[in-house]
């Protein structure tokens, strides 16, 4: 994987990487992807299609559950303004 691919990937993952991280993580990613290519050895025709899922049709009734006071959740927010959670946005 070249650096530009790593950059796009980091971008999608919302990670800022330092120069040295691009090198060290890049090397490690490379090594593992290389190892993943082992999966290509399997005979394609012998593989089943798609993803198997266990269970189906689990639903819950459309009824209110309120076992946690929302105020407790707001206390975890680093910054609040009235009941809004605040984030910086300098335009």
């Amino acid at each position: 994987m070249d650096v530009s691919e790593l950059k796009i990937t980091a971008e999608l993952a919302n990670l800022n990487l330092m120069e040295e991280e691009f090198v060290s993580l890049g090397r490690e990613v490379e090594k593992i992807l290389d190892y993943f290519s082992k999966m290509m050895e399997a005979d394609e025709g012998s593989l089943p299609a798609g993803t198997e899922r266990c269970g189906a049709n689990r639903i819950r009734p459309d009824e209110q559950i309120r076992d946690i006071n929302p105020d407790v959740l707001l206390e975890n927010a680093p910054e609040l303004e009235d009941r809004f959670i605040v984030i910086p946005n300098v335009l």
Partner: peptide
């Protein structure tokens, strides 16, 4: 980006990158 880059350790970043890729 800052929260994630400063908050996650190396192995976590590595696996996020791999998984994203």
């Amino acid at each position: 980006r800052k929260a994630r880059s400063e908050g996650f350790g190396n192995e976590v970043k590595l696996r996020i990158l791999l998984g994203t890729y």
